[in-house]
Design a protein around this nucleic acid. Sequence first.
DNA 1: CTGTATCCTTAGGGATACTG
DNA 2: CAGTATCCCTAAGGATACAG
Lengths: 135, 135
Amino acid sequence: MIYEPNQCPIRFGLGVFGDHWSLLIIRDMMFRGHTRFQDFLDAGEGISTNVLSDRLSRLEAQQIISRQKDPSNGRQVIYELTDKGKDLLPIMLTIFAWAEKYDPKTRVSKELAERIRTDLFGARDEILATIKQSI
Amino acid sequence: MIYEPNQCPIRFGLGVFGDHWSLLIIRDMMFRGHTRFQDFLDAGEGISTNVLSDRLSRLEAQQIISRQKDPSNGRQVIYELTDKGKDLLPIMLTIFAWAEKYDPKTRVSKELAERIRTDLFGARDEILATIKQSI
DNA sequence: CTGTATCCTTAGGGATACTG
DNA sequence: CAGTATCCCTAAGGATACAG
């Protein structure tokens, strides 16, 4: 058994970042350096203030991001990825690599994509075979 | 620039497997060996027939899964992952590894988790630093 | 067994105005 | 600037019956 039913890691992941907006917010922090409420509003995805507020709260509650005031400007709030949030990077990168392989429009940094491709895509069938045996 | 705006790989991924049910269906095919309509209904997630039907159609349209009749039983339909679907494995595994790190209940095969951890978590900060420079 | 077809309900989210 | 508070609306999805 790869994992215990009712203790499914995919379900766990979906609970944390499994909605449309959360993953885009994390993406913007990770790859665009966004740190402020306004940054996310201006990202062009069309998120409304109430939804953004809600998602930032949830992500903070789950310790994916931290919220603090800018010491040099007390009215400015700064959002940052926590270690738990930064550790979502491998998930993002594997999505990148998959998209680069199947979305003709996606262009990702070659080094990153190459790394993932050899490390994980390369062993795909071997790993799937291992999994099949343990079902 | 890591990727072109409006050509975002995360958006592309969300469009394919970004809803609650699709990822669970793919999981069941990948890690539980499910191949039949009834398998998914019985998976215990409580999906209804109309939604399941819809998701299977979409996944087939996106060539994540294939649909064919069982040659030995003409009334039995068999769903299988295509290569494009199998290539979602790295994404699944990185979610596994992340969940194992942060969800106390999740227990994943050690070898798989270890492989991902050293390959990708290990270089996390280094990669993030590279990204920051190119924003 | 593998789906459609309907009905119905609710949660999610857009628009907007407003506040500390 | 960073949110809250409403209002409203629609699309997603659960339940169920039925069909090929």
